[in-house]
């Protein structure tokens, strides 16, 4: 038990908690900046080019911050959690590619009458990622 006490017992939990909180904050900031960049030009500043460009740049900066935070989060996970995440990401990327191209093809060959939306693909990828994470946790339970 002495050996356990000698070690910084909560190091993994603490680091994980900090990384998760950081990722949450960056994701919220990016989502908010995207919403501002998407809707504010119409409702707040009447498509002023300078302000719109500033909003886009701010959104990109927050996006990069979120990506770096996500990388730090993933690197902070232990090896099994990392494997679950990477498996889920691989699945999500594959499904996104196959479903995305097929979805686009449907419109090209007139099987659907509406324009394919990128948002639909993002939703599919998010759901696949979530499903992959749940399946990964169940696999190692």
């Amino acid at each position: 038990m002495n050996k356990l006490k000698q070690m910084n017992a909560d190091q993994y939990k603490d680091r994980n908690y900090q990384n998760t909180r950081s990722l949450r904050n960056w994701t919220m900031a990016w989502t908010l900046s995207m919403a501002i960049a998407a809707f504010a030009p119409k409702y707040l500043w009447d498509f002023n080019i300078i302000i719109s460009m500033a909003a886009i740049i701010i959104s990109l900066v927050f996006g990069v911050g979120m990506l770096l935070s996500n990388r730090r989060y993933l690197r902070g996970l232990d090896e099994m959690q990392q494997r679950i995440m990477y498996d889920a990401m691989g699945l999500s990327l594959g499904v996104g590619l196959v479903v995305g191209l097929t979805y686009d093809l449907l419109e090209d060959i007139k099987l659907i009458s509406f324009q394919p939306e990128i948002a639909h693909l993002v939703i599919i990828m998010c759901l696949t990622y979530l499903g992959g994470i749940i399946a990964g946790h169940r696999k190692f339970q």
């Binding site: 356990l4 017992a9 993994y12 232990d78 090896e79 099994m80 959690q81 946790h137 190692f140 339970q141």
Partner: peptide, 11 residues
């Protein structure tokens, strides 16, 4: 044990 090895309890 998880804390000592710096991994999650699930691992």
């Amino acid at each position: 044990l998880a804390s000592a090895l710096e991994v999650s309890r699930q691992t």
